[in-house]
């Protein structure tokens, strides 16, 4: 691999220009980002990995150039640039994997009345009913939808895209939801063990 032998300040200075320094900096960064994405994205796709990596590297180079002023200087510039590339690539992989899944198929059915049965089954069903009710009562509709989608396995950036927000804001929304539920669970003395499935051995 060529040696992108620059200090952090030199990277920033070269990327801020628009002449041969910029071109040279991007060409020195390209193999660094290419290797980063080849070793991380490559194993995660079945076919067309080379073309996908090439496209992602191109997008990442543009993003690194455009966002270079956000680099805080507390790590190597190439570490920051590789993180920008990896985050962009993994967001794209998640988008491709989840693009055909609408949010509403992940949102829960209305809770059902517990079937009569053994005491343990009844207690378990009551606890389940209570948690579902607290989700309905304590959370906003947006919090409830986001929470259920994330619990169903949808990545946060994909939930965020469907709710017209971003991952950071969604994390804060879900954090607030968890704190509200924590208070409600604590008030009722509800713990994870109340939700153990009594039919499990």
């Amino acid at each position: 691999m060529p040696s992108p032998d620059r200090t952090n300040d030199e990277w920033l200075a070269d990327l801020a220009g628009d002449g041969p320094e910029l071109t040279a900096a991007l060409e020195d960064l390209r193999p660094v980002l290419h290797q980063a994405l080849r070793v991380t994205v490559g194993p995660r796709v079945d076919r067309g990995a080379d073309a996908l990596v090439d496209d992602l590297v191109q997008d990442a180079l543009l993003q690194v150039r455009d966002r270079a002023d956000q680099f805080r200087g507390d790590a190597r510039f190439t570490t920051w640039a590789q993180r920008v590339a990896v985050n962009l690539a993994f967001s794209e992989l998640r988008r491709k994997r989840w693009e055909d899944v609408p949010l509403d198929v992940l949102v829960a059915d209305p809770p059902q009345a517990p079937e009569p049965g053994a005491d343990a089954v009844m207690e378990q069903a009551q606890a389940v009913g209570l948690v579902r009710q607290l989700i309905r009562d304590e959370l906003t509709e947006r919090q409830s939808t986001a929470l259920q989608a994330v619990l169903a396995g949808m990545p946060m950036d994909e939930v965020a895209r469907r709710l017209d927000t971003n991952r950071n804001a969604l994390y804060k929304l879900l954090h607030d939801a968890r704190l509200r539920l924590r208070r409600a669970f604590e008030d009722r003395g509800l713990g994870p063990d109340d939700l153990l499935d009594p039919t499990d051995p």
Binding site: A108, Q148, L151, A152, H175, L179, L190, L195, L196, D197
Partner: peptide, 18 residues
């Protein structure tokens, strides 16, 4: 998808750890 007991158990544990 329904909020099944194992999913809710994860939620309760995660909320209480928030």
């Amino acid at each position: 998808m329904t909020l099944t007991p194992p999913v809710l158990r994860t939620l309760v544990a995660r909320a209480l750890a928030s």
